[in-house]
């Protein structure tokens, strides 16, 4: 019996579907969740989570957050998440450049903007890493540039 997996970011439902196993970047280390897992509440690290269903694997970046595991479902709540196949490489690179420029200028830390930029930088690096590692050769990483 598969387990239901839901990935929700602050601005949309990223993924909703069945899974045989869900592998998550838990704050205490990677964890694989199988159906009928005991209830678990855990914080997540920045990282990539995997959803495997009938031999097919899908990868999602998650920018921290929490996961609520119930025997019949895994609900991931995160600030930002996307399917690795949907990541826009150019946009991520752009974001990194912008954030680095901002941080280089030496703005006062601990302002909302500073923290937001820092988080954006972290997220974008994560996206690029994920693309490098998990996007198959059939999926050229600059595919969006051509369209």
């Amino acid at each position: 019996m598969p387990i239901r997996c839901e990935i929700v970011s602050q601005d949309r439902m990223v993924f909703e579907g069945e899974a045989d196993i869900v592998i998550l970047p838990g704050s205490e280390g990677e964890m694989g969740i199988l159906p009928n897992h005991a209830p678990l509440l855990s914080t997540l690290n920045y990282g990539v989570m995997k959803v495997r269903f009938q031999g097919q694997e899908q990868y999602f970046t998650v920018a921290g957050g929490v996961v609520d595991v119930q025997p019949d479902r895994v609900v991931v709540l995160t600030d930002a998440a996307e399917n690795v196949d949907e990541i826009d490489v150019r946009r991520a690179e752009e974001a990194i450049r912008r954030a680095e420029e901002y941080l280089k200028a030496g703005p006062p830390p601990d302002t909302d903007e500073y923290l937001a930029m820092e988080a954006a930088l972290k997220r974008s690096h994560l996206r690029l890493e994920a693309v490098k590692r998990y996007r198959g050769p059939s999926m050229p990483s600059y595919r969006r540039e051509e369209s």
């Binding site: 704050s27 205490e28 005991a38 209830p39 678990l40 509440l41 855990s42 914080t43 929490v66």
Partner: peptide, 13 residues
Amino acid sequence: EATYIYEPDMDTI
């Protein structure tokens, strides 16, 4: 009836 397993620990999360 089952209680949660908390990671890292209950208070933090």
